[in-house]
Nucleic acid binder design. Sequence first.
DNA 1: AAATGTGTACTACAAGAGTAGTACACTAAT
DNA 2: ATTAGTGTACTACTCTTGTAGTACACATTT
Lengths: 129, 129
Amino acid sequence: MWFHVDPSDGLPIYMQIINQIKRATANGLLKAGDQLPSVREMAVQLTVNPNTISKAYQELERDGIIKTSRGIGTFVAEKEIKIVYEERTKEMMAAIDRLLVEAHHLGFSRDEVFKLLEDRIKDWKVSDK
Amino acid sequence: MWFHVDPSDGLPIYMQIINQIKRATANGLLKAGDQLPSVREMAVQLTVNPNTISKAYQELERDGIIKTSRGIGTFVAEKEIKIVYEERTKEMMAAIDRLLVEAHHLGFSRDEVFKLLEDRIKDWKVSDK
DNA sequence: AAATGTGTACTACAAGAGTAGTACACTAAT
DNA sequence: ATTAGTGTACTACTCTTGTAGTACACATTT
């Protein structure tokens, strides 16, 4: 599998794994039901301790992104939104605000952000199939 | 001044301060040249150690958001974008991707994100004056 | 030169994060 | 029952983070 990790990235290993899996499920590379590599398999491949992988998997499970069963394996979960509407929206707006603040300090106007997002979404769509 | 801090927030105190100042400069509450409270003043007001404030100010200065002079005080910096275009754009796209991944896991479609951002930008604009 | 207001350096310490080693526990197949 | 595959608990160690205490250094005003 296409996981890779850079120990000197600053970002902790288990975080890098989490990010990759989140992205993969977000863009369809990983679909509900897909089995992930076992903690040992992945640990060997990345030359990392099994617990590090386990930690990533545990956090992903807490977020409801994967489902893991002892002795069986770890799988991408069925998508089910559990949080209530207001909560979701609140979090989403907070995320958007963070983006806008960051954009401002990178020197982008809000309209530019809008445009960039528009383009990006189009890109995602075509690669969607 | 309107700074406030919650020690039990999980987010470290100096980060909370950084965020508030970043936001304030991003939405115009703080403008270039405005003086910030001295480290001591703010430390007393928030019942926190001066070094904690200092750490926040240092990080903000590294980001070019404020300008500080020993014995004088700390001020909001003139906006000057130092990073080259490609770098800025790269970071911005990364931020947008992070937002889209987060949105997906919150159960928002990309079009919904688009719509929310559109609304949000409109809001910012009217409160712009 | 003294006083007062500014930011800072140095030190220390408690708490937590990150990873690894090792041994255990569950499940399915043989 | 055994085996081979899975995830996990426990422990320990290192390194970093976050904050505080204290003392210092610079700038301006008097």
